[in-house]
């Protein structure tokens, strides 16, 4: 006979802990003022990057030599550059490029890095050693140098910039995911699903991946900042998007020659890069604190 359990307590309304934990996450995130500011800034960037180009009245790439190097005015909010192009318009158009480079390169690096890290942590042994040593080699390059090397091999274009920055982000993801996978792999429920006949692929993607998601999300946010910084750096060195693309790093580079006469040429693109990176960094930090179970109060 099947017995009735005397410990069967009251039945609470079934709640989805994922929904529940996202609610908590939002509550904790809201308490962190810096993170809120970062998040709002990201939102502004996102909206401006997507719909901004349709609202600007001027052509970002049309040279108007007659009005070159003008300071900020009512007509040209951020002034004009050495070809007489409106800097504000160029920055708005550059927003989309910066975002594209940031998101796609991190997505690329994230997908490859997460895959390598999870495989490395799950299988261990020689495979782990080989993968992680390759990651160590990639990490041994001073950040931008690696991306620089890749772009010089592939040639300078937006796609190659994304690839270069993506490859540069792989080791960070691989390391973090490997570590989390190692701890999750040892939990008994992994043995339990193995004992139920689950295949390795199923265990990795269905049972381990959702459990290592939080550090991945945080890392994605933080890496976007690094990726944008690296991409701007490469463009500054002339290895990113070819002119006249309104890429912020490239704008900075072009404006460098006029720093004495017209500092606004470097001031505004530089400021945008700083704001963009700062926004993602403080938002990422806030997200990490909010997702850290030890911070649960």
């Amino acid at each position: 006979m099947v017995q009735q359990s005397p410990v069967a307590g009251t039945i609470r309304k079934p709640v989805n802990p994922r929904v529940e934990s996202y609610k908590n996450l939002w509550r904790r995130l809201r308490k962190n003022k810096a993170a809120v500011v970062g998040g709002l800034l990201i939102l502004v960037f996102l909206v401006a990057g997507i719909i901004g180009p349709y609202l600007t009245t001027q052509d970002p790439n049309l040279p108007q030599i007659s009005i070159k190097l003008q300071g900020p005015s009512a007509e040209h909010w951020f002034g004009t550059d050495n070809y007489g192009r409106d800097i504000f318009t160029r920055i708005i158009h550059g927003m989309g490029i910066t975002m594209t480079v940031g998101f796609f390169s991190v997505a690329l690096g994230g997908i490859i890095g997460v895959f390598l890290g999870i495989v490395s942590g799950y299988y261990g042994g020689k495979l782990d050693t080989v993968i992680m040593r390759i990651m160590d080699i990639l990490l041994a390059f001073p950040g931008i140098l690696l991306a620089l090397a890749i772009v010089s091999v592939l040639g300078g274009s937006l796609t190659n910039l994304i690839i270069a920055v993506g490859v540069f982000s792989v080791p960070a993801f691989a390391r973090i995911v490997r570590g989390s996978t190692l701890s999750v792999r040892r939990l008994e429920y992994i043995d339990a699903v193995k004992a139920l006949g689950a295949s390795d692929a199923r265990i990795i993607f269905k049972h381990i991946l959702p459990n290592v998601m939080s550090p991945i999300i945080v890392q994605l946010t933080l890496r976007i900042a690094t990726a944008v910084l690296t991409a701007s750096g490469l463009s500054f060195l002339g290895l990113g998007a070819p002119p006249p693309t309104p890429e912020w790093g490239a704008m900075l580079s072009e404006g460098r020659a006029y720093m004495q006469q017209a500092p606004h040429l470097v001031l505004f693109p530089g400021l945008m890069i700083v704001l963009f990176v700062l926004a993602f960094n403080i938002f990422g930090d806030g997200l990490r604190d909010a997702l850290d179970p030890k911070m649960n109060k």
Partner: peptide, 18 residues
């Protein structure tokens, strides 16, 4: 596994995926 032969483990608190 899980079909003809099944197994249950010692630690019920950690044997289920959260």
């Amino acid at each position: 596994r899980g079909n003809a032969i099944s197994m249950i483990f010692q630690e019920p608190m950690t044997s289920l995926n959260p």
